[in-house]
């Protein structure tokens, strides 16, 4: 019970803030044409489900982000481990990944459109490209900062290379890898929604673009709220994944 109390308190605070916002709008302190009433946002949901197929769109955005995130996980961890294994390669490429992490890759969307067409594939590729760098960099860091004494423990217990990797190196590097994955999923989601918005295709990003053009403010805000829910879902997924993996080692 006491474990659930802090998250419950967090949710309660958000609800309280929304109530305050509602009161502020009703009192005329906040203009209803800038921020619609939270109750109107909630009330718009059935309409969004009915007319805008929001559940399917939610699935599209979630799926695109998940695909980009999984690709970044597989390619990023493999690349990170390879670069950590070959120090010369690491010296050659690590700065480029740091640069890639900082680059506003979404600006290059026309190029990706030409390469992959106006499709979900383009969105996934852009999101993957933005999510890759943090996974690579954090994987390198995770393996590079393992305390040498833990590796000595493995040697002194005459572990095989596979045992050493599975029972010492990987669990020691996992916390850093998960930091990279969290960043990757944030980057992926921002890019998925951003590109959907820009190229007017697919999921919640496109919906936000359309509704805002129609001046449907409650609907726009409700859709933004749904993007936040996608993000929360990924956060929970990663948290559960990390806990499960830690228990196994």
């Amino acid at each position: 019970m006491s474990r659930l109390l802090p998250p419950a308190f967090g949710v309660l605070c958000i609800v309280a803030l929304l109530c305050l916002l509602q009161l502020a709008i009703q009192a005329g302190i906040v203009d209803v044409y800038i921020v619609p009433l939270p109750t109107d946002m909630l009330a718009s949901l059935p309409r969004l489900v009915e007319e805008e197929h929001v559940i399917r769109r939610f699935g599209v955005t979630f799926g695109e982000t998940l695909s980009a995130g999984l690709l970044a996980l597989v390619v990023g961890v493999a690349l990170g481990m390879a670069l950590q294994h070959w120090p010369r390669m690491r010296r050659a490429f690590e700065p480029w990944f740091a640069l890639l992490a900082a680059a506003p890759l979404v600006m290059a969307y026309p190029l990706f459109l030409v390469l992959f067409g106006r499709s979900s594939l383009t969105i996934i590729v852009i999101a993957f490209a933005s999510a890759l760098a943090p996974v690579v960099l954090k994987t390198i860091e995770g393996f590079a900062t393992i305390r040498p004494v833990l590796i000595d423990v493995g040697h002194s217990l005459r572990m095989t290379r596979a045992q050493e990797f599975r029972l010492i190196l990987l669990p020691a590097a996992l916390p850093e890898i998960f930091v990279g994955l969290r960043l990757a999923l944030i980057f992926a989601l921002i890019n998925v929604v951003g590109v959907e918005f820009l190229i007017n295709l697919g999921g919640l990003g496109q919906l936000i673009s359309e509704l805002s053009e129609r001046y449907d403010l409650p609907g726009t805000w409700a859709s933004i709220g749904l993007v936040v829910i996608v993000s929360i879902l990924f956060f929970l997924l990663l948290d559960g994944g990390e806990r499960w993996l830690r228990k196994r080692h």
């Binding site: 305390r147 004494v149 833990l150 000595d152 423990v153 002194s156 010492i168 669990p171 020691a172 996992l174 830690r246 080692h249």
Partner: peptide, 14 residues
């Protein structure tokens, strides 16, 4: 031979 190292070497995830 069993070794106890100078630096504490518990596996923190266990």
């Amino acid at each position: 031979v069993g070794m106890v190292f100078q630096e504490e070497s518990c596996l923190p995830w266990r």
